[in-house]
C-alpha cells in the first residue's frame, strides 16, 4: 500500500507541476492553453532522447527539456499573438496534436508508436520499487514546492501584476505603457518551461514514453485540476491536482466497496462519479477551492 500511495503522490506531483505551469499562462496572463500536454510531451521526449540515445546525464536532460518547452512556448506565443479566447484554445489544442502526430510519425527519431523504452530513472537500479517511489515522491514534491514558491513570488511582483492586468484588459495594460506581447511571450515561455520540466521527470519516472501517453485527456485533467483548485493561485493548482488524482484513482477501489458489480459497471460508475464530483465542485465554488485574492483599490477610503 505504501508503495502505491507514493506512486499516486508522484502522479499528483506531475499534475501539480503541470497545473502550476498552466497557472502562469492561463491563471495569471489569461491565455487559454489547451495544448499543455504538447509541451509536456516535448519535455518528455527531449529528456528521453538525450538520456537514451546520447547518454547525457539526467540533470542536463531535465534542463534541456525545460529549455525546449520554453522555446516551443515562446514560439507558439508569438505565432498566436493576435488570438484570444476560444481561438487561442483551438490553436493550442491543435499544437499538442501536432506534437503527438509528429512523435508518432518521425520514427527515425522517436521510435513512432513503439515509443522509447528503458529510460533510466534516478537510482532506479540501486533501490527497491518502494525506495524508488519514495525518492521520486520527495523529488517531485520538492520541485513542486520550489516552483510554487518561486511562481508565488513572481505573481506578487510587478511582473505578476502586469500579467494580471493583461488578463483583465489588454488595452488598459497597453495604454499604461506595458509591452503586452513581450509580457505574453515571457509568461508563455515560463509556463511552458515548467510543463517541459514536468515532462522530463515523467519520462524518467515511467521509464517509457509513447505518443499514446500524450492524449488531450491529460490536458483536460490538468485544466480541471486548476479550475477546481482555483485559477490564479499556486495553492489552488496544487490542491486541484491532488484532488483530481484522488478522484480518478480513489474510485478504482469501488470494487472493494461494491463487490456485486461487474468490472464494466464499475468502470462506468467511476466515470460518472468523477464527472459528477467535478460538476459539484464547480457549481459550489465557481472560483475554485482556493479563490484568488487580489488587492482592490478601496474607493471609499479615498
Amino acid at each position: 500500500m505504501a508503495s502505491y500511495l507514493l506512486a499516486m503522490a508522484v502522479f499528483a506531483g506531475f499534475y501539480a507541476l503541470m497545473a502550476l505551469g498552466l497557472n502562469v499562462i492561463w491563471g495569471l496572463a489569461g491565455m487559454i492553453n489547451l495544448g499543455l500536454v504538447g509541451f509536456f510531451a516535448i519535455g518528455a521526449y527531449t529528456a528521453a532522447l538525450l538520456s537514451v540515445k546520447l547518454h547525457v546525464p539526467m540533470l542536463v536532460g531535465w534542463g534541456a527539456a525545460a529549455i525546449a518547452g520554453s522555446v516551443a512556448g515562446a514560439l507558439l506565443a508569438v505565432v498566436t499573438a493576435r488570438l484570444k479566447g476560444d481561438y487561442l484554445a483551438i490553436v493550442t489544442l491543435g499544437f499538442s496534436e501536432i506534437v503527438r502526430l509528429t512523435a508518432s510519425n518521425e520514427i527515425w527519431l522517436t521510435g513512432g508508436t513503439d515509443g522509447i523504452s528503458a529510460i533510466p530513472g534516478p537510482f532506479r537500479g540501486a533501490l527497491s520499487p518502494l525506495g524508488f517511489n519514495l525518492v521520486f515522491a520527495g523529488l517531485i514534491w520538492g520541485v513542486v514546492a520550489v516552483t510554487a514558491l518561486a511562481l508565488g513570488r513572481l505573481s506578487a511582483s510587478p511582473f505578476g501584476r502586469v500579467l494580471r492586468a493583461i488578463r483583465e484588459d489588454e488595452m488598459v495594460a497597453a495604454v499604461a505603457g506595458k509591452p503586452v506581447l513581450a509580457f505574453k511571450v515571457r509568461a508563455f515561455a515560463l509556463g511552458a518551461g515548467v510543463l517541459g520540466f514536468a515532462g522530463a521527470l515523467y519520462a524518467h519516472y515511467n521509464g517509457y514514453v509513447a505518443p499514446d501517453a500524450f492524449q488531450p485527456l491529460i490536458t483536460i485533467y490538468v485544466v480541471l485540476a486548476l479550475t477546481a483548485g482555483g485559477t490564479g493561485t499556486m495553492r489552488g493548482a496544487m490542491l486541484g491536482a491532488v484532488l483530481v488524482i484522488a478522484l480518478t484513482e480513489g474510485t478504482r477501489f469501488l470494487d472493494d466497496v461494491l463487490p456485486g458489480l461487474a468490472p464494466v459497471q464499475i468502470a462506468a460508475l467511476r466515470e460518472a462519479l468523477i464527472g459528477t464530483a467535478l460538476i459539484v465542485i464547480l457549481t459550489w465554488r465557481p472560483q475554485g477551492l482556493v479563490a484568488e485574492r487580489t488587492r482592490v483599490l478601496q474607493l471609499e477610503a479615498l
Binding site: S3, Y4, M8, A210, D212, E249, R252, D255, P263
Partner: peptide, 23 residues
C-alpha cells in the same frame, strides 16, 4: 481475482497496474 480497467490508455494503465501490484 482482482480486476482493473486500463482505459485502453498507457497513462491510466500504469496507475491501474500499480494498484494491482502494490495494493
Amino acid at each position: 481475482l482482482v480486476s482493473a480497467d486500463d482505459e485502453t490508455n498507457p497513462d491510466a494503465g500504469v496507475r491501474a497496474a500499480r494498484k494491482l501490484i502494490d495494493v
